[in-house]
Nucleic acid binder design. Sequence first.
DNA 1: GGACGACCTGAACAATTGCTCACAATAGTG
DNA 2: CACTATTGTGAGCAATTGTTCAGGTCGTCC
Lengths: 209, 209
Amino acid sequence: MTSDRRRIHPRKQPRQARAELTRQRILDAAAHVFGEMGYAAGTTNRIAERARVSIGSLYQYYPNKDAILLELVTRHLDEGRQALERLREETLPGTLAGIFRAHVRIVIDNHRDDPHLLQVMAEQAPRASEVLDRVSRYERERVAYVEELLTRHPDARVRDTHVAARLIVATVELLVHQLTAAPDPVEAGRLENELVAMVTRYATGGGAV
Amino acid sequence: MTSDRRRIHPRKQPRQARAELTRQRILDAAAHVFGEMGYAAGTTNRIAERARVSIGSLYQYYPNKDAILLELVTRHLDEGRQALERLREETLPGTLAGIFRAHVRIVIDNHRDDPHLLQVMAEQAPRASEVLDRVSRYERERVAYVEELLTRHPDARVRDTHVAARLIVATVELLVHQLTAAPDPVEAGRLENELVAMVTRYATGGGAV
DNA sequence: GGACGACCTGAACAATTGCTCACAATAGTG
DNA sequence: CACTATTGTGAGCAATTGTTCAGGTCGTCC
């Protein structure tokens, strides 16, 4: 069923410039509509309407509604992944607090565009879909990174590095989501400071920061 | 529109025992279906089917789908609220860590039944509805409680008590959600210890636990 | 400039959903 | 038993949704 449909919908590479433009307009509109109304209420017709594109065009570029969200998620995760990759190469030495600060800053920056959209991605996303797979794969990568950090860095004092890493990654990600998308959002700079303090004190076993 | 419907649907108090039973069956089924499939895919017909009750009966007890989720949420929040109330009366003295531990334990216990359902409540809940109002009101109560604690308790060392309280409440709530509903959940006892450590070290300014 | 393919259009379809209503079954009362 | 109120039933309606398709418009290249 679904695989047949996918065969009927082999979206091609655009040959003309306007095609790429249309594609981008659809994606922007989808980001806005999903962020504003959530995934369920963000209908494809509404997305097409906001993109000033016919519904037919939308389905020329995306085989179904899920695919739109999937691309949105993929792009977002890739940005985060790249930023973390850069961080990993640049800053080999440094205090734990400094490393965590860079980490936190990346996550905050990565969410600055549209916090509500990201909330949709993490929450309203269809269950058990490829979207969730990608999100959790990305999460596992980050946990692995932090776990290695906790193992290697001399300031780190935790018993179970794996559980601690899971705690830290989840804390940073979830609190940034929650506290920047809240009706009364915490200011970014302060949020960064508090998150760094929290996570660092936890990882250093309550010792000096 | 909606208000007219509500007038047509003044659900009465049940006069016979079987009515209360049916109501409970519907609620249990809804909890299961929502937890399993999410809010959008958890259709009223599916709920009725699982409750072994006709769809008509379901609508005799709940005016619409939202009302079912609302009751589920209300009950859950009330349980948490009552538990916190009891805590507040019992334990006036104690170390910060001890108080936080009691707090964390309540949240974990409150989620033990069906972690996935709670995820639905917090996430898939219809946007800008009464459900969200209740959730955020409960959250504000907890923030106020923690804020007062941070102000009064001698061990607490934080600059901005309000922001710190928001961080702490959000951390406990979100991490319990995330790490008990994950595919590879963290064991409850360990989660409690780690959360208490994290929050306490944060609140005491990195000093001794 | 004509012709072919890339691109775009939007009315309409099939499927699904929340929900209603006319009726049936059951419990309580005398 | 008969009568009424309470509770239960489920086919089907109205509305909405994701998606398709027959046919247009536009760009590009000979």
